[in-house]
Structures are given as C-alpha cells and as structure tokens.
C-alpha cells in the first residue's frame, strides 16, 4: 500500500527497481562470461544509485555511505576481480547451462510471478513509498538462486550468488531503508572475502581439472 504514489521518490525508486530486474534478465541470456560480468557491474551500479536515492529522500547520511561503499565494492572491485579471472582463464566459448535460454527465460518469468505472490504480505503491511519495488527485488533473489543451480561454470555460479546477494540488499533497502550499518559492513566484508576465495578456487579448479565446468567434479557423492 503506497500512500503517496505521485511522489517523485516512489517513481524513481520503481524505475530503478525495474532496471535492476532487467539487468538480471540480461545477465541470464548473455553467453560470454565477460558480458555477464559487465551486466553484473551495471546491476550493482543501478542498486547503488537506488541506495543513494533512498538515502537522499529518507534523509539518512549513514545510508549514503553504504551506497558509496556498495558502489566501490560491487561496481569496481568485484567486477575487476572477476574480469581478471575471466581473462586469466581465457576461454570465452558459449556457456553451457543445464537448460536452454528460452526455457530459462520462461522459468525466470515464472519466478517473478512467484515473487509477487510470496511478497504479498510484506507489500500489504509496508507504508514506505518504496514498497512497490519489493517483489522485483525478491524476484532478483530467486533468479540469482536459479542461476546458481542452473549454470555449470564456477564463475557463473559465483555471479548467481552475487545476484542473490544484490537482491537481498535491495529487499532490505526497499522494505526498511537498509539494515543497521554494522551489519551492512559485516555483510560486505563477508561477500568480498567469499568472492576472493572463490576466485582462488576457480584457478585451482582450472588448474586441476583443466576446465571450470563444475560437472567435471563428480568423485564425491554427498
């Protein structure tokens, strides 16, 4: 229930939320890894812009700092790390997902519908002008999750995980104007460290299996 839909704040927030989801879709239909990494960087850029908008209209200086830090980590540092990994590994051929592009798109469209259904109680009770974007953010979470399980390449799985993280950050942003600063800092730290560790693992997988397709690793049956 948005109380003041005519406010520019609500409109800008909605626009950015749609752009966010658009980037998720563009990411999943792209085939080359470097294009996927670029899409992720653009998505993170949209998200940090959204955080800055919310900080401006919500009058929170703390959140402004979070937006800047978010942009630094997810638009600059992490895409750089991933681009470096892509160029070092040096294979650019088509990514092999378990499902084809059209099926994937269909499933992701279904996930958007599911997101609207699941987030209905949150939308109902939320009185912030940003409430309309919540299901879109949650759709981003679901699509990220789906990408992680659908793709065979370690790097794309990492991108799926990062999209999932972006979506959660956005849900928090739209529903509550962000979680407390100390938690946000901890989450950024964890994500950054996770990506750095995963990068090392991508190199090791490439070195050991001469491929970054995770389906090559099948010795253990957990």
């Amino acid at each position: 229930m948005v109380l003041f839909p005519e406010l520019p704040f609500a409109r800008v927030a909605n626009l950015l939320s749609f752009l966010f989801l658009l980037m998720s879709f563009l990411l999943i239909i792209r085939n080359s890894l470097s294009a996927q990494v670029r899409m992720f960087a653009v998505q993170s850029g949209v998200l940090s812009a959204l955080a800055a908008v919310v900080a401006h209209f919500g009058g929170s200086r703390e959140l402004f700092g979070v937006a800047v830090l978010f942009a630094f980590i997810k638009v600059i540092v992490i895409p750089r790390v991933l681009t470096r990994a892509v160029s070092k590994i040096g294979i650019q051929r088509a990514v092999a997902p378990y499902l084809g592009t059209s099926v994937t798109l269909g499933i992701c469209a279904g996930l958007v519908v599911v997101a609207f259904y699941v987030m209905a109680p949150v939308m109902e009770s939320n009185r912030l002008p940003t409430a309309d974007g919540i299901p879109l953010a949650f759709a981003g979470v679901l699509i990220g999750f789906f990408t992680t399980v659908n793709r065979r390449r370690a790097l794309t799985q990492i991108l799926g995980f990062l999209m999932l993280e972006n979506g959660i950050f956005m849900v928090a942003l739209l529903a509550t104007y962000g979680v407390p600063l100390i938690v946000e800092m901890g989450v950024f730290l964890d994500v950054l460290v996770a990506v750095l560790i995963l990068e090392v693992f991508v190199y090791r997988i490439k070195h050991n299996f001469d491929s970054i397709e995770v389906s090559q690793m099948g010795a253990l049956r957990g």
């Binding site: 995963l198 693992f201 090791r204």
Partner: peptide, 10 residues
C-alpha cells in the same frame, strides 16, 4: 579436497 571445498563454499 578441491571438489568438497568448492561444494561446501557455494
């Protein structure tokens, strides 16, 4: 070990 660790992390 690599396989287990990657699976564990992701």
């Amino acid at each position: 070990g690599l396989e287990a660790a990657y699976k564990y992390l992701i």
